[in-house]
Design a protein around this nucleic acid. Sequence first.
DNA 1: AATCTGCCATAAGGAAAGCTACTGCCATGA
DNA 2: TCATGGCAGTAGCTTTCCTTATGGCAGATT
Lengths: 290, 290
Amino acid sequence: MMNLMHWRMVVAVADTGNITRAAERVGMTQSGASQALALIEETLGVQLFSRENRQTLPTAIGLPVIEQARTMLGALEAIRSTVEAAKGVQRGTIRLASFPMVLATFLPPLLRQFNRLYPGIEVAALEVSDDEVETLLGAGLVDVGVVLNPSAERKASPLGRDAWMAVLPGGHPLARRSHEEGVSLAELAAQPFVLATGGCSTNARSLAADAGLQLQDVRVEVREWSSAFTLVRENIGVSLVPEMTLPGNRQGLRVVPVLPRIEREFALVVAANKPPSAAVQALRDMLDER
Amino acid sequence: MMNLMHWRMVVAVADTGNITRAAERVGMTQSGASQALALIEETLGVQLFSRENRQTLPTAIGLPVIEQARTMLGALEAIRSTVEAAKGVQRGTIRLASFPMVLATFLPPLLRQFNRLYPGIEVAALEVSDDEVETLLGAGLVDVGVVLNPSAERKASPLGRDAWMAVLPGGHPLARRSHEEGVSLAELAAQPFVLATGGCSTNARSLAADAGLQLQDVRVEVREWSSAFTLVRENIGVSLVPEMTLPGNRQGLRVVPVLPRIEREFALVVAANKPPSAAVQALRDMLDER
DNA sequence: AATCTGCCATAAGGAAAGCTACTGCCATGA
DNA sequence: TCATGGCAGTAGCTTTCCTTATGGCAGATT
């Protein structure tokens, strides 16, 4: 009763009305067919067909059972076609370019989930600066890239957004500001500053420039965010970092939002000059479904 | 891939996210479960689950496949419940009473079909006169009976109707009548008559009496219809028989309808004093579905 | 009346599937 | 570093299941 071939026999007999012909339809011996039928009938405890003189016809109980058997086999066939249709995305490679911050924060869980859904697709992640992402995308050297604030006409899958936060030493005057009050970018730029870049050209200095300001007193410039926190703790200066880079342990630090908020949206865009592969499409689908 | 137990494993793994627990849910070893999964994945040529560190989760291809597997197993479960619900009508006995004419003409194909649909139900057919049918039904000695022109309030399943036909020797004066002209019952009753009863109290004599007539010259009275045809061929007299008893070979006979037509409706009724058994209900259902 | 034919059931044997017990591997967490 | 949880692989045995061969039954054929 647990063998689908036997159920194929059942519907074949129902279709042909003849065990012998049903047997050759599913590629079996007449004997095997007879045994298969008898086995199913025995385990069900019910007679599905009555063996007439010239034909084998379903009984009243057999009729609904046969219909259910059809749906069983239909589901199996659906599985087959589903699998055949999906085999294209089984293997493949995606070259991805991203600047370090997103690569270290947003992407790992996403790529982990993607690798779970598509174990055969390999994702090669390139860690580059945000300027180079555009270059690689334009040259077709990568399939997808992470960009900031994508223009509407690009097919972009949003990854998330972040806000830049002021990081202050515990004793700093601005550290008294509440979350609602916040600090302005201008106030921050006037302080002794620990500039952290995260390897990204979009950083405190460029943000200040965008706002028509300038960092007045950059005491030190580091690449790693974590280094910046250490330096702020040692009272070298204040800093401005993306919210998601904040450490779990904020001992000796005061984090206050910058008001008006400075937010950036990250999104994944595909290279425009060539049609996206099935693998890339799968990645986009996963992102859009969240 | 043809083993439903393996598909049970698939959905169990999908439900528990854990091969080990899935295995014990379907009563198997962890090893067997792993092998079952691997076998299905191999024959499909597709990875359905990705084995993570702590859990085994479906891939993008696995998700729809699992859903189809659920419908497969659902259909199997439906088969099980269908069979369980229908086991009541597997065996049983029906006592049936009928007068000979219907028993010899209408019932054989019906009982043959019924026996095909319900091989386990035994139908014991009693051949009695039409008067006795009512007696047996009333006494509850039979489950169902064939009656003539059932009253509307009885739960009756119509079997069919027949018309009485005049059977004349080839050279008889009335044999010139066309089918449209017919012969009247009065004309027929005036002829030398071969009275055939078929063992039924409803026969030419009773029909004549119902019409206020009387058979003038009954030359011979026989029980078998076929005997009557022979006697008519030998010009002993005319006869009146139900249409369905007419022989295939009408050599030397002329068959003309009686006008106005004398028709009787046959129907199957159940004994009213006790609720019908599942077997009887099955018989009624079959008749009503035709 | 005897034989033929189409169709099904049953017996016996063997091949293959499938399960179990056991071991090994890997990653995580103490 | 070891302990733990979870999965894969191997060997062997049991069971299932298929095939070949044979017998039986009911109409059809002659």
